[in-house]
Design a protein around this nucleic acid. Structure first.
Lengths: 164, 164
DNA sequence: CAAATTACGTCAGCCTTGTTGACATTCCAA
DNA sequence: TTGGAATGTCAACAAGGCTGACGTAATTTG
């Protein structure tokens, strides 16, 4: 069965793969365009968006957790978190079990911004999905998952399991 | 028929769309990981990779053309192009028809680096495609295309036409 | 032909977001 | 109890975006 796939994929030439690479590049630009527009002019950037997104997804997460998901250094993340805390979008609470840790939550204002960003991004995603059709959507998700680094893919799959 | 799609997509909840957003984020990290690794330590970054990629794709392209495809300012692109020309990876030739223009080509060394970067990126893409299967691949490309900004999508589609 | 426009390059300065290095605090285990 | 490991913060730097201003050459237009 895996062999059958390989056979079919002989028709994917290097040129077609290059096209797919460009499609990924252009699509990612579209993917980030709406949040970028919202954030520009309010002193925030993509890094803030990512932090806000993942704090929303896993409330109470620690800085270290966030670090490994975002794939940046703690110093880099810290700068972003500091401004978000200062501006009252994120609440950073000293851990009770381990007081070295900081547990992160979105404030009401943080949730509001998260929703604004997420609404815009989901709207584009939903439109693309609607135009492409349901079969395309599942293929899309399948390929994306296989393009991730194995470690991140495990994390991603783990979240999926947890949701059921 | 479009209505039929909409009906099916009612099952795509906001939560599922958020998952797709994360998948896109993680997958893009994988997508750029290999070229990033190759380029780190040789004074180049993603910006150089993009320039090299598109000069390879459209040899003889002008600075202005490249600008609109990459979506950056000329000052930003110029910094990148200058180092590439200085290092002998890109050749910048004064236009013959319009001598204000500079036509960009990869040198042999530039083509060699392009191949190295492209090989790595295509290998990952090919592996993901093989694991996901042919049906998933066409869905993937379909969705990506619909996620682009309309202008870029027209450009993308135009290249496709030109290739037949 | 003169003037406006276009294409490109460059300088200066700023912002975001990545990096390393140094350091304080807290916890845990020898 | 003390030394090491883990967590998080501060400082400084680099890459690569951005805007604004300007210069130069070539082309187009009135």
């Amino acid at each position: 069965m895996a062999q059958g796939h390989s056979d079919n994929l002989l028709f994917l030439t290097d040129e077609q793969l290059r096209r797919a690479i460009e499609a990924m590049f252009f699509a990612y630009r579209g993917f980030t365009a709406d949040p970028d527009r919202i954030l520009s002019g309010m002193n925030y950037g993509r890094a803030h968006h990512r932090a806000i997104h993942f704090i929303h997804r896993t409330p109470g997460t620690t800085v270290n957790n966030l670090l490994s998901v975002l794939g940046v250094t703690k110093q880099s993340l810290n700068r972003v978190l500091r401004t978000l805390v200062e501006d009252g979008l994120v609440d950073s609470r000293v851990g009770t079990r381990d007081r070295r840790e900081r547990h992160l939550h979105l404030t009401d204002a943080g949730e509001a911004l998260e929703r604004e960003l997420s609404d815009a991004q989901r709207a584009r995603m939903r439109a693309a999905f609607r135009e492409a059709g349901p079969a395309a959507v599942s293929g899309f998700r399948e390929v994306l998952e296989h393009m991730m680094d194995p470690e991140l893919r495990r994390y991603f799959a783990a979240v999926k399991e947890g949701e059921r």
